[in-house]
């Protein structure tokens, strides 16, 4: 497929976020160019999901500026904000699908943000044939076209993830964000999945931002690496420039996190 439009340009300067009294991001300066593919790494609690939330416009930065294609998100009203969200596809870590409707409906829900109320409702009750054909095309690219009319909760984890990806693509997005897509599938599938997302983003000219635990995969597939630590950008380089000791440092962080995860929650 030919890329129909250029991907999203993100620009953050001094962006910070406070959630429930806790500072999760601060002083983030970033520029992500259209069509770039970026891996976001760092221990959990470093603010990866929050940063993706800022890029997706689902969270408002408490300070600083977040720009999507040159538009300052802070200045947008609710309606305009919803329109901005509709242009960014977001694959959640737990897929966040509606379990007891069919795959077709879940994919068609991707357009709930881009259309009016009645059109949106129609996608659940009596979908338009054109939409179904488009959904089928997307699912075919994802390799699960025959699941179009299955109930979503009868699918396997990997298939559900593809449906979530399909929903994001159905949005006709300018950027594709994914939160820990590798964490929920087995390692063999993980590579296929990241490769697939890469390919889709390249074909459609989307900006791709993926948060990852697995440094190996980040190294293998992404030309640019952004490391987060304690809510700040600790590292932002093209992959070739990352020195071995910096990798070691990131690995060490990953191990520290693994031991911390053992501790019981208060």
């Amino acid at each position: 497929m030919i890329s129909r439009r250029t991907g999203a340009r993100f620009r953050l300067s001094g962006a910070g976020l406070v959630l429930g009294g806790v500072r999760v991001l601060q002083g983030v300066d970033l520029a992500i160019e259209p069509g770039e593919a970026v891996a976001l790494v760092g221990p959990s609690g470093a603010g990866k999901t929050s940063l993706l939330g800022l890029l997706n416009a689902s969270r408002r930065a408490t300070e600083g500026v977040v720009e999507l294609n040159g538009v300052d998100l802070a200045g947008l009203g609710q309606r305009a904000l919803r329109r901005a969200r509709a242009t960014v596809g977001f694959v959640h870590q737990d897929f966040a699908l509606v379990p007891n409707v069919r795959v077709a409906q879940n994919v068609l829900f991707g357009k709930l943000g881009g259309r009016g109320f009645l059109q949106g409702l129609r996608s659940m009750v009596a979908p338009r044939e054109d939409d179904l054909v488009r959904a089928h095309g997307i699912l075919e690219r994802l390799g699960i076209a025959d699941k179009l009319y299955q109930r979503t909760d009868t699918l396997s984890g990997g298939e559900e993830q593809r449906v979530a990806l399909g929903r994001a693509l159905f949005q006709d997005p300018v950027a594709l964000l994914a939160d820990e897509p590798v964490a929920s599938v087995d390692p063999a599938r993980a590579r296929d999945l990241v490769a697939l997302m890469q390919e889709l983003a390249r074909e459609d000219g989307l900006t791709l931002v993926v948060s990852l635990h697995d440094l190996e995969i980040a190294r293998e597939f992404f030309p640019r690496l952004i490391g987060l630590r304690g809510g700040r950008v600790a590292l932002d380089r093209s992959m070739g420039e990352v020195r071995e000791e910096e990798f070691a440092e990131l690995y060490r962080l990953g191990e520290a996190e693994a031991t911390r995860a053992e501790e019981p929650r208060p």
């Binding site: 997706n56 689902s58 904000l81 919803r82 329109r83 901005a84 969200r85 509709a86 960014v88 596809g89 977001f90 959640h92 737990d94 897929f95 966040a96 699908l97 509606v98 379990p99 829900f109 991707g110 709930l112 943000g113 881009g114 109320f117 949106g120 409702l121 979530a164 929903r167 994001a168 949005q171």
Partner: peptide, 15 residues
Amino acid sequence: AAPGALRDLGASELL
């Protein structure tokens, strides 16, 4: 998680 995801893709509250 689904309602949150639909909100994240710009759906109105009623939808």
